[in-house]
Write a protein that binds this DNA or RNA. Structure first.
Lengths: 334, 334
DNA sequence: GTGAAAGCGCTAACAT
DNA sequence: ATGTTAGCGCTTTCAC
């Protein structure tokens, strides 16, 4: 591995000067800079980040923890992050928690050992013990939470207004003349699902003659199907469904087809998340967009700013969701 | 940041001894080891990987480059890799090329600067210039290619037998009595798509009275739809379609529904990749499974072995695909 | 089984 | 504008 020493030898300049060239210090003459760059090219020089980090205390690495990478929403966020971070000289490293508290802690520890300069994280559904997270915060590594945030004070966060999203989705069903709603909720202890549920309830509040059911599904899809089947049998008057996610929406679509219940004829359906397949189903699933790319960009920007002006106090940003009306929730075919 | 020095101070032992404890050197007495561990726990010690790497020349980091992370296949591979690597003490860092040669090179360079111990990569569709890759290989960082491999000699690789997959898919359509086949191909210059196409052609070879068409789609989905529409108009006798991927299969499904052509009644369809949504469509899409998890595991194992026995010569592994028959290709409804 | 000391490649005072 | 030098936190001979 050819290093800075080699370049110093070739050019006859000191290590310091060579180093300065690569750190864009203004205190180098153009001639010297050119000479160094030429030598660097000739030996195919790659700066050793490890050494630089060790000395400077800055690794130029940002750690990102997401529950799952194979997910339209999170991968959209990652793309947003990459976009912002790419020309700032930082590298990002991605870890998946696979919705496990343990793996999340492992990832966080790895990041610490790697001396990352900052951490971006959306916590797992399972995470209820925030001690690891608080350890990180105390260790003075800046953290920005996105989408799924822990219930802690004084943290940086970028979230979606899930309450509003739930409200909008429900309101849309009501506008389409649904009278008997079903909300298929995720685990309401997870912040985002709880908020969507609240939005659902508040949209119905004060509306007359609207009935509703809520089922909270947290198990396997096979079990969920059975529960839903029972729900439809018990409650055949259901004419509007708000599913907490598009994937669940797709399952509902298939289940109702099996039960020979027409969507949107008999029952209207709306999902959440604007997954890539939601516009490709039959009928196309109405949904709520989560502005993932924007969320990624904001999250990264927030961290980058914190990295610049060390102490600026915790910042919070809440994005507004966007209703996307497609075929599954419309009485009039499009 | 509490370091090894701190522990040395607390325990009264030398730096060397403390270091040995964390490196599982056998030359430490159990008593000493216990004392060190206790001290480490008391100050919440995290080893500094940067410093260790710098000194030892081993970063314990493996870099992974994939075209896209939001993709059932690649994320499956990543999971496979994680599984193998997790209890080996290595960290993995993931970069996306987004199918761009330039971003791929950037990722590779970042890895080099980070002094990764090894690289796992599936090259982008765009990559035709292998100079960056050859640079890495020459730099003695072990590389294992998976799925999409460059046309180079003496490389480690784990691939799917895409030829066989194409053959199987086509044979299946023939067995279902299709007489006029359409193969929707990806860019045949990309190794995997070229192989699938060859498999398609060979399966038809020597079969009597089978007609076929191949369209190679490499542009946007809107353009692709137009091309396909024309193809069906020009060639109304098509009764079997082999699409190079499940996403394209889904598009075909929707397009044919618009054109009021029944699947599988009038036309049989098979995709490739076993994407997560392919079993959730109406009808469910028949496909070819790529054994992604197994591929990830093998890829990681191959690298880990190379990392152990430095020079063992390039290894090559080819996996067999698995036919998954669902509704879209069956005459008899399931 | 343990310790002393050199040094990995680079940066950042400080000096010139 | 350039050079000298100390040292980041750890590993690793070599000595005892």
């Amino acid at each position: 591995m050819a290093g800075i020493k080699e370049i110093s030898k070739i050019t006859g300049l000191s290590l310091a000067t060579v180093s300065r060239v690569f750190n864009n210090s203004s205190l180098v003459s153009p001639k010297t800079r050119a000479k160094v760059m030429k030598a660097a090219a000739s030996i195919d020089y790659q700066p050793n980040i490890m050494a630089a980090s060790l000395r400077s205390g800055k690794s130029k690495i940002i750690g990102v923890v997401v529950p799952e990478v194979n997910n339209y929403f999170f991968s959209g966020i990652i793309n947003g992050i990459e976009q912002i971070v790419s020309d700032s000289g930082y590298n990002i490293i991605i870890s998946q928690s696979h919705e496990s508290q343990e793996k999340e802690n492992e990832a966080l520890n790895s990041f610490l050992k790697l001396q990352v300069d900052g951490i971006l994280i959306s916590i797992s559904k399972e995470t209820t013990d925030f001690s690891s997270i608080q350890k990180i915060i105390k260790s003075n590594v800046p953290v920005v939470f996105f989408d799924r945030v822990p219930d802690l004070k004084n943290i940086n966060s970028v979230t979606l207004n899930d309450y509003k999203g739930g409200y909008m989705a429900t309101e849309h069903l009501l506008n389409e003349n649904c009278k008997n709603l079903l909300h298929i909720s995720g685990d309401s202890k997870v912040s985002i699902f709880g908020e969507r549920q609240k939005g659902f309830l508040d949209a119905i509040l004060n509306k007359n003659s609207i009935e509703y059911t809520i089922v909270e599904l947290t198990s396997s899809i096979e079990m969920d199907r059975e529960i839903l089947k029972k729900t439809f049998e018990t409650n055949p008057k259901i004419d509007g469904i708000f599913a907490y996610g598009d994937e669940m929406g797709l399952h509902v679509l298939n289940l109702l087809k099996e039960l020979h219940i027409d969507i949107p004829g008999k029952v209207k359906l709306i999902g959440f998340g604007n997954a890539n397949f939601s516009g490709l189903t039959q009928p196309k699933i109405s949904t709520v967009d989560q502005e993932c790319s924007q969320m990624g960009e904001l999250t990264a920007t927030l961290l980058l700013n914190t990295l610049k002006n060390s102490k600026s106090g915790p910042k919070t940003k809440v994005l507004s969701p966007r209703l996307i009306v497609r075929e599954s929730s419309l009485s009039t075919k499009v």
